[in-house]
Computed example of a mutant assay.
Amino acid sequence: MVSHLLNTIRNAVGITGNVIALFLFLSPVPTFIRIWKKGSVEQFSPIPYLATLINCMLWVIYGLPMVHPNSTLVVTINGAGTAIEVVFLTLFLVFCHDKKKRLVVLLIVVVELVIAAAIATVILTQVYTTQRRSMIVGIIAILFNIMMYAAPLSVMKLVITTKSVEYMPFSLSLASFLNGVAWTTYAFLPFDPFIAVPNGVGTMFSLAQLLLYGTYYKSTKRIIAARKESKMESEMHLSLSEVAVANGGVVPKKTAGAAP
């Protein structure tokens, strides 16, 4: 009876975790709408999406029945996450105008695909028990899962340097925090260290991002407002210059003592 109740609670938390994780994977949509409209990736970093891609692929391998039985919820959400990250990275490559940066991102994606394929091949052909497969893939997945949560550290450095959270989307930070909490809870029903450890660490990283957001939110609004005002002044000066050019480029002046 207790076991059945525990399993029911675990499934309920897992489904909740899936919904939150889906929100996490889709949270960069506003960022990519902005990129689409501006036709440029600006200062947005591809690191979080690259880290999430390899993370999702490894958790799909971990959740396979022949690796870690009874982990369907792990497979479904990470399979969806893999597809979503592929779309985001494709858009990033399309709108990245720095050829060197675009090539680096593309090479990293290829390397990640090779790593995931190699791990799956070795695990399924050279390791013969689900317990050992779970342990090996779980340890590797922990490392990449922590990398996914730690990926925004570069953005956090930018936030502290510029005192602006413009390039650290709030939706992504909030979704990361809620996702970490949900999957940490899931990992204790029953205890699964391979899910608990990275998501516990991820919860702390995400909390740090939210604290930064609260700290620099007001200064960000001031910076954006000042930028808009500067842009308006520049456009006004440009308009005056165009009027001057239309009038011959010279503003007539009166000369003192000149004969009428």
Rank of each mutant, 00 (worst) to 15 (best):
V2E: 09
N18M: 11
N18P: 15
I20A: 01
A21T: 15
F23E: 07
L26Q: 07
L26N: 09
P30A: 00
T31A: 05
W36E: 05
E42W: 03
P48Q: 04
Y49P: 00
A51D: 00
N55D: 05
V60R: 05
Y62A: 03
M66K: 11
V67L: 00
N70G: 08
I77L: 08
N78I: 06
G79I: 08
E85N: 14
E85G: 02
V87Q: 03
L89P: 02
V94K: 09
D98E: 01
K100W: 00
L103E: 00
V111T: 04
V111P: 02
A117F: 11
L124H: 13
Q126K: 12
Y128E: 06
G138K: 09
A141W: 11
N145V: 15
M147C: 09
M147A: 09
A151V: 13
M156G: 11
T161W: 14
S164I: 08
E166G: 12
F170I: 07
S173Q: 03
Y186I: 01
F191V: 06
P193D: 02
P193H: 05
P198L: 06
T203N: 04
T203I: 11
Q209T: 03
L212I: 12
Y216I: 09
Y217C: 05
R222C: 01
A225G: 06
S234K: 14
E242K: 15
V243M: 10
V243R: 12
V250M: 11
P252N: 04
K254D: 10
T255Y: 13
G257K: 01
